[in-house]
Amino acid sequence: EQHESQKPDTKSLVRQMHEAYLKHFHMNKAKARVFLTGKTSTPPFVIHDMDTLQHAERKLHTQLLGNVASGDASSLQEREVEARLFLFCQYASVETVTELTEFAKAVPGFAALDLNDQVTLLKYGVYEALFALLASCMNKDGLLVARGGGFITREFLKSLRKPFSDMMEPKFQFAMRFNALELDDSDLALFVAAIICCGDRPGLSDVSHIERIQESIIHALRLQLLSNHPDNALLFPKLLQKLADLRQLVTEHAELVQEINKTEDASLHPLLQEIYRDMY
């Protein structure tokens, strides 16, 4: 394995994925930890109740909602708090899906795949990847939002009315277990690539091509973990287990979103609609 890790193609794959990750994701674990540990001159604004949420909406409007049309924005304040938070989540998700798409294209071999297979890999992979990345923005007390401008407390999210109160708690529980593995951004880059390039998504046409890409990423991930975490020999199998946990997390999340979509007056962004439709 010592010898294997010296192979230039694996080393360059590790480096390439790390660079693409830093290039395409505006937030990463190193940046998030600076905000979460208070080592910044501009600490995030803490959102812990309705008043602080309203204050944050005025203060962080662009970071929370991106370039939402001004008409939508002006009617937003009339909507209930749960619907507004659901909308912020959606905009953050759309942004991350866009970043993940660019990151996926940087995985060697991905762009050469049949376009239908690229669509399928993203459809099934983006939410698993999103929740893995979200863990970097979480600690036991809350979640960093609006590019580090805000911090929503876990208690406030739990205090929302049902079914919205059930939205984030499972992600916190996953994040606490996942963060205990102490991965850094160079590990996460390969982990996210492994999530996306997964040969057993439903309806893939060129499975063997995807499995070859997957194999090279998993191989690189194993060697990366051995060299970056030499004292934790079980990290690689533990991380493979997290892939299964993420799949379960997404299945439950998709069910909850379908329920909200059916029973609440909360419209779903067209990109997210595409992803959820006929998913599981």
Partner: peptide, 20 residues
């Protein structure tokens, strides 16, 4: 199939866009 792309027009467009 063709319908997969049609059902995922935005994803498809994101994939075909160059780096912005």
């Amino acid at each position: 199939s063709h319908t997969l792309q049609e059902k995922h027009k935005i994803l498809h467009k994101l994939l075909q866009n160059g780096n912005t």
